[in-house]
Amino acid sequence: MNPTVDICYEVDRLADIGKTRARVRFVAVTTLGELGALCSTRHGHTELRVPPLPGEPLSDAGAGDAMVAALTLRLAAGDDPVEACALGLAAAAAAVLTPDTEPFDREVAEALYPAVRIKRQAGS
């Protein structure tokens, strides 16, 4: 089983569903490393902060890939872009807690997700 290939198949499957659910046509995400990310849509900008890690960082290998995969998966499913970005940050944080290039633990990402701090900027 290859998690990357599995995610790609799931994105393809959900893309067809997402076409009918899409609420946003424009999404830009600027990553800010350990600080989090900035999610921009036609409605404005939202700052997202990484939750405090429950352990020492072990490796940043694959953190960006984990974020992009989770973000893409949730956008394809029709989720709100800010919520999709929050899950992406949680996945990236879970990847940082994983040694070397091992796949991150999905349960860790899901546990970190509620702790992502979301701050909508004025006018957003």
Rank of each mutant, 00 (worst) to 15 (best):
L73T: 01
E83W: 05
A63Q: 10
A93V: 01
P103W: 09
A63P: 06
A76H: 04
A76N: 00
A90C: 03
P99R: 08
A77Q: 15
D80T: 06
R74T: 01
E102Q: 15
A76E: 00
A84G: 02
T101K: 13
D79R: 14
R74P: 00
V82P: 13
R74I: 00
D60W: 06
A86W: 06
E102H: 15
D65G: 05
V96W: 04
T72N: 05
D79M: 09
A61P: 02
S59R: 02
A70Q: 10
E83L: 13
V68H: 10
A95R: 15
G88Q: 01
G64S: 08
G55V: 03
D80C: 05
E56C: 07
A92C: 09
V82A: 09
D79T: 09
L73I: 12
A94R: 03
G62Y: 01
P99T: 11
V68I: 15
A69I: 07
A90E: 00
P99A: 08
A84K: 05
G88H: 07
L71P: 01
C85S: 14
R74K: 14
A69S: 15
P103R: 12
L73Y: 05
V82F: 11
D100A: 15
A76V: 04
G55I: 02
A77V: 00
P103M: 06
T72V: 02
A90V: 05
L75A: 00
L97V: 11
D60Y: 08
T101C: 12
T72Y: 00
C85E: 07
L71Q: 00
L73P: 06
P103G: 12
L71S: 02
D100C: 11
L89W: 05
L58G: 03
L71M: 13
G62I: 06
A66V: 00
A63T: 10
P54C: 11
L97S: 10
F104S: 06
D80G: 01
L73S: 10
C85R: 00
A76F: 03
A63Y: 05
S59H: 05
A66N: 04
S59I: 09
E102P: 01
R74A: 09
C85D: 11
P81D: 10
L73Q: 04
A94H: 07
G55L: 09
A93F: 01
E102L: 14
D100R: 14
F104H: 12
T98V: 12
L53P: 03
P54G: 13
P57I: 13
L71R: 02
A77H: 10
V96D: 02
G88K: 08
T98D: 01
D80F: 08
E102Y: 12
A76L: 08
A63H: 11
T98R: 11
L75C: 08
D65V: 07
P103L: 11
P81M: 13
D79L: 14
T101R: 15
T101N: 14
V68Y: 03
C85W: 12
A61D: 11
M67R: 04
P57F: 12
